[in-house]
Design a protein around this nucleic acid. Structure first.
Lengths: 100, 100
DNA sequence: TATTATGTTCGATATAAATCGAACAATAAC
DNA sequence: GTTATTGTTCGATTTATATCGAACATAATA
């Protein structure tokens, strides 16, 4: 499988972060990751009723906004939150996403 | 001049707030309001190099996201931040916007 | 009342984003 | 090796957003 690109958080603008978090599916993904407290998810584990192409797209948007990190694991890919890094760059933003 | 509609903050979703703050011009407007600490701005006072139609559009987006309040004042309209309300609904978000 | 200043709204255009199916690639399992 | 599973990428389509000029409305003022 391919190599994932993960930008440094320094290079992520506030506008880009906001844009990434302006979609309900993507907010849901981040909430799932927050609720899971560090656990990694395969792509298909996120509960979304969209095609796998769209799912892949949303994950890429979150990746380029510095929100998630994905690694290859055999046949699957595993995604986790970049929680500490993101929190340092945009303090308090993740707390807003937490389910409520 | 017309009546402005201002949604209750309860009715503003996180996605909508994020969407409103995903544009550099709009981030700039909110930063100007934060820096001015309560002062009201007329539309044309925000330093933006876009047409007045576009300016009006961006202010409407912020208005519908619960970020600003606009009132008619004779020939002009005056806009201020809905700082306390917005902070109560989305704690910490405005702090992220503050110029830095 | 005519003029000017300040914004809004409309219609059009251009750009960006979301979405899907199909084709592809890589790995695991048979 | 063949097949099945998991995702990515491509091309096309649809929907949303940004942008502007022109027309309009309102209020202050000459």
């Amino acid at each position: 499988m391919r190599q994932y690109r993960h930008p440094s958080l320094r290079s992520v603008s506030l506008a880009k972060a906001m844009q990434a978090l302006s979609d309900p599916w993507r907010i849901g993904i981040v909430q799932d990751l927050l609720d899971a407290d560090g656990k990694e998810f395969t792509c298909s584990e996120f509960p979304m009723s969209v095609s796998k192409a769209t799912r892949s797209h949303h994950l890429e948007v979150l990746r380029q906004a510095g929100l998630i990190r994905t690694r290859v694991n055999g046949k699957t890919c595993l995604t986790c939150l970049r929680a500490e890094e993101f929190e340092k760059r945009f303090p308090g933003l993740l707390a807003l996403i937490k389910s409520r």
